[in-house]
């Protein structure tokens, strides 16, 4: 039995399915409570129903984009784990980065079904869970106090400057992260088989370029052609096209 077939065993589906089912029940519970509370405080039920229908229609397109992410990761991690991660807590760009770093940490050459082992898989699954759980942890310990503090009247001036750079710092951190990986692809091409031999694989760089071009087209459509809805597919769509290009370009290696 291949490793991917093992990772797709019904028992693994069941483990992930139970967690997803629990989260679905939590969502229904919160929804019913919010609706009842809205009615109790005299909110217009038509408005609440509009919020539900508009959110349902809004969520369909991004959900299909997220499904493409499950497909993208299923070749290296099987289907159940990406299904769980992208249904609960995760997001496509987080999960792929953490899975790649985790694969590296367990000694795999990269996130790939070819090199995956059962031990590497369970270690990657644990790292994915622990690395991206902090939002939930902070919610448990700080939500009540934080929201209370926000709703209380402010003393003195705000801290707009610090928040302003906080946003810039987040972007800069992602730029640093992306640069480290792209730099590694360039380094592998130039010196992967010996200093300045230029005999390493050029496929990852070609994939980066194709994904960048497709993303540029998505952004152009969203910004210049007023097709904001395409943004829902921008990351997953760029990835799928670039991965298809890898299949085509791989024939030339």
């Amino acid at each position: 039995m291949s490793i991917i077939s093992q990772l797709n065993r019904p028992a693994i589906f069941l483990i992930c399915g139970i967690i997803i089912f629990f989260v679905a029940i939590v969502c229904v519970f919160f929804m019913v409570r919010a609706y009842r509370a809205g009615k109790a405080i005299g909110m217009d039920t038509t408005k609440m129903k509009r919020a539900v229908t508009s959110s349902a229609t809004f969520a369909i397109l991004p959900s299909i984009g997220i499904l493409l992410g499950v497909i993208a990761l299923s070749g290296s991690l099987g289907t159940p784990l990406p299904w769980l991660r992208l249904s609960v807590i995760g997001a496509l760009h987080y999960e792929t980065q953490v899975a790649e770093a985790a694969a590296e940490a367990v000694g795999l050459p990269g996130l790939s079904g070819t090199f995956m082992t059962a031990e590497a898989f369970t270690t990657i699954a644990l790292l994915m869970s622990v690395c991206i759980m902090w939002g939930m942890v902070f919610s448990v310990f700080a939500n009540k106090r934080y929201l209370k503090r926000l709703s209380s009247p402010k003393k003195g001036g705000g801290n707009g400057g610090a928040m302003g750079f906080g946003d810039t710092a987040m972007t800069a951190m992602f730029i640093g992260l992306v640069s480290a990986y792209i730099g590694s692809y360039i380094g592998s091409l130039v010196s992967g088989n010996g200093l300045f031999t230029f005999t390493g694989s050029w496929l990852p760089i070609a994939v980066v370029i194709v994904a960048g071009i497709v993303m540029a087209v998505f952004i152009w459509l969203a910004e210049k052609k007023n097709a904001a809805w395409v943004e829902n597919f921008s990351i997953a769509g760029s990835m799928i096209v670039a991965m298809a290009a890898a299949v085509a370009l791989g024939k030339f290696i």
Binding site: Q97, Y181, G212, M215, S234
Partner: peptide, 28 residues
Amino acid sequence: QPVLQTPALQPAFDNVVPALFGAMAYKY
């Protein structure tokens, strides 16, 4: 699943991460 696991498609799944970083690189 059998289609997704064919060797011909492996370059696609081996390049998930470069595909993601290419898209994100342009965006950022």
